[in-house]
Amino acid sequence: MYERHLITALDTSPLLPALREILTHPARLDELISDVGVPQGCLVGNTTTELVPQDSEATEIVTRSYRRFIDIVAGALRRAQAAGEVTDTRSPEAQAQLLLYVVQGLSLVSRAGLDRMAALAAIDAAVDGLRV
């Protein structure tokens, strides 16, 4: 389900506003979650911190999920590079890997509280680094 959402969200032009929207989800958890008892953070990120590497099945699932994120985002970045929207000084896979680290890092930090404005500034820095 998340993959379909990601593919749909990134099948747009211009790409950078869609990428920013995806990256801001962890920084906007206070807006997105209003019920006190609802778990916070990303399921894959939480699984990573709680079960990997002790659980080989969880490790395989998480590895596959991260790989799919990179593949989907790299495909969108490749199209944006061809359109001249995104810098081509780095490979789309390296750019996608960086974005994975940003979104998962924000998901993890959001569990302990998050300076929302600092998080959004970091996201903007990451997105601006992709611009031509």
Score class of each variant (00 low, 15 high):
15 L>Q: 02
57 E>R: 04
35 D>K: 10
96 A>Y: 11
132 V>C: 13
131 R>F: 04
12 T>H: 06
50 E>N: 10
123 I>G: 09
32 L>P: 03
78 R>N: 08
49 T>L: 12
131 R>I: 11
40 Q>T: 10
46 N>W: 00
46 N>F: 00
62 V>M: 05
35 D>P: 01
41 G>L: 00
38 V>H: 14
53 P>L: 01
84 G>P: 02
124 D>A: 15
123 I>N: 07
19 L>F: 11
52 V>W: 05
59 T>K: 03
123 I>P: 05
13 S>Q: 13
15 L>R: 01
116 R>C: 09
39 P>G: 03
48 T>V: 00
123 I>M: 09
69 F>C: 01
69 F>H: 15
98 L>S: 13
112 A>G: 03
29 L>G: 11
44 V>R: 00
108 L>E: 11
51 L>S: 07
116 R>N: 09
104 Q>K: 11
77 L>M: 03
101 Y>M: 13
30 D>Y: 07
90 R>M: 13
54 Q>F: 12
14 P>D: 09
58 A>H: 06
85 E>N: 05
20 R>Y: 05
96 A>T: 03
20 R>E: 15
106 L>F: 12
2 Y>F: 15
5 H>P: 00
109 V>F: 08
78 R>F: 01
40 Q>A: 07
113 G>P: 09
44 V>H: 03
42 C>Q: 02
51 L>E: 07
93 E>H: 07
114 L>E: 14
10 L>Q: 05
7 I>Y: 01
129 G>F: 13
12 T>N: 06
2 Y>T: 02
126 A>M: 09
89 T>Q: 10
129 G>Y: 12
61 I>T: 13
4 R>A: 12
97 Q>L: 14
24 T>E: 15
33 I>F: 14
25 H>I: 14
60 E>I: 00
111 R>Y: 02
